[in-house]
Design a protein around this nucleic acid. Structure first.
Lengths: 142, 142
DNA sequence: TCTTGCCTTGACGTCGGCGTCAAGGTTTAC
DNA sequence: GTAAACCTTGACGCCGACGTCAAGGCAAGA
């Protein structure tokens, strides 16, 4: 099949496929007229790449999986390199979660401090400041 | 004071200060020779900007805070615009936490599946595959 | 044959927050 | 006097994963 068809089947774009090829993932055979030609195996590889992207892996991270599949394995994560990517990425996600958690805490304390300094519900409410604060806080602290 | 001195006092670089000026934050008076001149108020503004950056706000997000300080308020978050930024950013962080959480779950299940498919400790270990899997799993699933 | 729609390569744009280099003018310490 | 250390503007680089546009070749239907 040609690039547009493959892209549509996998839910991506021809531009993305050319980019993957330029990155060394998912090369293609060429027809006589120079058009890229793909088969079902390429569709499998592409779907693997896209699925891993959804899980947060970078394109570079997907290379071991693609190589693993091309080596004849049933799944892309049948190789130790792939599993190491999983583990590394998991650690990165955990680190990011920690950082975001502390950012959230800092933001909350700053917001709380600001609301405490504000006169707040004492003003003749021309909009819903006090109400909004009362409504959003319980939801976000939980 | 001049740009290098201010930068050092705030723990940043002259390049960053010029960038903030180009973004419309933290403008400076000019000395006769064209050098930027800053005072203690500018140091306060700059520290506000940097503190907010640390909490995850973009430069654009810090504008209301700077304007609030320049309007004569004691703190940058004494204005409703600033508080709205807090709330919006908090929502963004929460959304990001949710997404990262589900990414983490997906990664974990993929990793677990891959390890289950692996023969694992049955091979004559030429390196530490089985050991590593056994050691990392309890730590990361917890 | 003509139009439409696919394909090709190449090259620049995006976003944020600066880093880094270039080419010069200024000030300062010795 | 001179070298070091500061300052100025301008411009390009970076990162990731493509989007978008340009200029042209190829294919298929009416």
């Amino acid at each position: 099949m040609r690039i547009g068809e493959l892209a549509k089947m996998a839910g991506t774009t021809p531009r993305a496929l050319r980019f993957y090829e330029a990155q060394g993932l998912l090369g293609a055979r060429r027809a006589a007229n120079g058009y890229r030609e793909y088969d079902d195996q390429d569709l499998r590889l592409l779907r693997e790449i896209l699925a891993l992207q959804e899980v947060g892996l970078s394109l570079d991270d997907t290379k071991p999986f693609v190589e693993c599949l091309r080596a004849g394995n049933e799944t892309g994560d049948s190789c130790t390199d792939s599993i190491e990517v999983y583990e590394r990425k998991l650690a990165e996600v955990d680190a990011c979660l920690d950082r975001l958690g502390s950012l959230r805490a800092s933001l909350l304390s700053k917001l709380a401090g600001a609301l405490a300094r504000q006169p707040g519900p004492c003003q003749v409410a021309d909009h819903r400041d006090g109400t909004e604060a009362a409504a959003t806080n319980p939801r976000e602290i939980s």
